[in-house]
Design a protein around this nucleic acid. Structure first.
Lengths: 168, 168
DNA sequence: TTGGAATGTCAACAAGGCTGACATAAAGTT
DNA sequence: AACTTTATGTCAGCCTTGTTGACATTCCAA
């Protein structure tokens, strides 16, 4: 025991200096910029923003999802989401269908045009993610996801895990 | 060779399915929310926003930095940064000193009050990062940072590496 | 001395958060 | 049947934080 960076205090306790944590924080900050950079460029030239991307992404992931469910995933107010959804519906990228069982609910779907934009956006985002994953290697990728999952708030972790298992 | 998840096509080529990439993308999205959640709460009750946090963070990391350097790190316009800096200076959290060598430059420093807020914010953010790092383990942490670094844009990676080596 | 760099400032605008209030329809409950 | 709750939409207004454009000042450097 105590062979890996041995430190007084027991084998299970991980000593993390403020310096190590700071590097993680700054890495997160700079990386998130890269993460959003490519879709952002595409969105701007189409007159949309990151909020539209988020809505499109999760409607694509869960076709037929309700507004309430989307609100819970995105963590914004219905007024904020509504503004975004309205433009997407007006522009023919999203379709909103009244529920059959519960007619209060609206079920959201991407139209063909919406699916096409989604593909364009996620292609760009996946491309960067792929390059990063390849450069880092599979072990790093596993660690990457493990840390990110541990960083999530409880509600978000629930959403993440549900989507993780969802059929693609 | 070809023993770890063997796949036709050569040992160096990493096969990444869209599904694996998608999980990475969603992990990044949900985790970033957790990453900013704790400082955000503190900031709101003090009447500040995330932009103030970013400025405070990097002024703390590089005391005496110039406005131009900060602009390059933050990647916003000078007008946008100026608005944030002005309130921080008015509120006595940041001090702006005219350069001695080059009097056009302003060198930015945190005041005692600014350093105190910085500590409060980074304590909260470090706390979450520490919990996540501990839960994930040291190998995962290494992978986490490797992937994030590979995800950065070139300019941001330069900034990141410079800060990484900087004396704390 | 002139050009350009660094900075500040003013104005205007947009995206996308927020709150509060109100309307409607449908579902659920008593 | 009456009432309450839920799901959604909408209007109005506010805030932060990003943007562009224009213009002034200061001052280094060629």
């Amino acid at each position: 025991m105590a062979e890996s960076g041995g430190h007084p205090g027991g084998e299970n306790l991980l000593f993390l200096t403020d310096d190590q944590l700071r590097k993680g924080i700054e890495a997160m900050f700079f990386a998130y910029r890269g993460f959003t950079a490519d879709p952002d460029r595409i969105l701007i030239e189409k007159g949309y923003g990151r909020a539209h991307h988020r809505a499109i992404h999760f409607i694509n992931r869960s076709p037929g999802t309700t507004v309430n469910n989307l609100l819970s995933i995105l963590g914004v107010t219905k007024q904020s989401l509504n503004r975004v959804l309205r433009t997407l519906i007006e522009d023919g990228l999203v379709e909103s269908l009244v529920g059959t069982r519960d007619k209060r609910e609206r079920h959201l779907f991407l139209t063909d045009a919406g699916a096409e934009l989604e593909r364009e956006l996620s292609d760009a985002q996946r491309s960067r993610m792929r390059d990063a994953f390849r450069a880092a290697g599979p072990d790093s990728v596993a660690g990457f996801r493990t840390v990110l999952e541990a960083m999530m708030d409880g509600d978000m972790r629930r959403h993440y895990k549900r989507l993780k298992e969802a059929p693609q």
